[in-house]
């Protein structure tokens, strides 16, 4: 088993940050907050995956980040192209350029698994999304296994594990004095050559503490429940905000608009931007004439659950949810996807 000492790991990360973009979990926001707050986000600093300048900025002791890894592959906002006027007075389009190579350090196994879902949607079927494809290609994923499943986590109920190496290029598992290192892919192999890994015999890997596993509804149960009053009852307390969608590692809905901005320097920029959107928003389906096929809140809420567990598996041959538990923790009215799944799974199949 390969091994790296903590100090060697820090030195390697410091070097990496000099050579390329290093993204890693890091604490953000003012330190003084309200530790006793009922809002978990207000209790203290939150950890995000952000670009860091070295190991000192990395948060090592975190559960899950406030936002998933998705924001680094499908940014909250990106410019698809700028629209400029050529010398002949005609429009010229300039596409967003390729990004530099990146190392994404400390990605949790569930977040890496989320990329598998995004891959299926954005790359799995022709034509592929070139912006997403570039970022995926240019990024090497170094995973950090969870020492345990945290509150609200349910990765083990949807096929994942807190120490799964399936979707990363390299996986680090914390052990006494350092990390056990699994090099998973060729991409990981290339990156690992610079790590200075040691070979250690008989290294014992810790067994992460798991949360109780539960059974998922069958396809028949999903089908039979579509028109059930159940969705109205869950929808009753839904606020129709977008927290669940935006913290989710596998939600990928986007909006596209053109915008003209004038910079403080007076430069006029016309561009087409793509930004996150959510099926929970009331305008999501509104057509130009005003028709809204999903005007009711419960229809929108239902869509999110079906998208994860029924539509994505059918349309893209992927599991739509990785069980990261973010939507559970962040929902201000305690709409708990685990509860919904178990409620449906208890039903008699039609």
């Amino acid at each position: 088993m390969k091994f790296i000492e903590i100090r060697a790991l820090h030195e390697w990360l410091d070097r990496l940050a000099q050579e390329m973009t290093l993204i890693a979990p890091t604490a953000v926001g003012p330190q003084e907050k309200a530790p006793g707050s009922r809002n978990p986000a207000a209790q203290g600093q939150q950890v995000f995956y952000r670009q860091v300048e070295g190991a000192a900025q990395i948060a090592w002791d975190f559960t899950r980040t406030a936002l998933s890894a998705r924001e680094h592959f499908m940014p909250k906002t990106e410019t698809l192209f700028t629209i400029e006027t050529g010398p002949d007075g005609k429009a010229v389009l300039h596409e967003t350029k390729l990004e530099q190579p990146r190392v994404f350090f400390g990605i949790r196994p569930c977040d890496a698994r989320g990329l598998r879902v995004l891959d299926a949607v954005m790359l799995g079927q022709e034509p592929a999304d070139v912006y997403y494809a570039q970022r995926r290609e240019n990024t090497t994923l170094v995973g950090l296994a969870c020492p345990q499943m945290w509150e609200d986590c349910f990765c083990n109920s949807v096929g994942g594990a807190p120490d799964a190496a399936d979707d990363v290029d390299i996986l680090l598992i914390q052990v006494e004095g350092g990390f056990a290192v699994q090099v998973v892919t060729e991409k990981g192999e290339r990156l690992a050559t610079g790590m200075g890994l040691q070979e250690v015999e008989g290294l014992e890997l810790p067994q992460p503490k798991l949360n109780e596993q539960f059974a998922l509804p069958t396809q028949q149960q999903w089908l039979a429940s579509f028109n059930d009053v159940y969705w109205q009852r869950v929808g009753d307390r839904c606020l129709s905000c977008r927290i669940c969608s935006y913290v989710c590692p596998t939600c990928r809905c986007f909006d596209v608009r053109d915008e003209t901005v004038v910079t403080p320097q007076g430069e006029r920029i016309v561009r087409r931007v793509r930004a996150w959107d959510s099926c929970q928003g009331v305008n999501y389906r509104v057509q130009a004439g005003g028709a809204n096929p999903r005007a009711n809140l419960e229809q929108r809420l239902r869509n999110r659950f079906y998208c994860k567990y029924y539509y994505v598996p059918i349309d893209y041959a992927a599991d739509g949810c990785v069980g990261c538990g973010r939507c559970v923790t962040a929902c201000p009215v305690n709409i708990d996807i685990r509860e919904v799944l178990q409620d449906l799974a208890r039903r008699e199949p039609a």
Binding site: G29, P30, L67, K76, L239, S240, C241, R242, S245, S278
Partner: peptide, 16 residues
Amino acid sequence: LGELDRCIRCYACRQA
């Protein structure tokens, strides 16, 4: 600016 930088435009504030 530091606080609003974290805003993700989820509109939960407005919805609640």
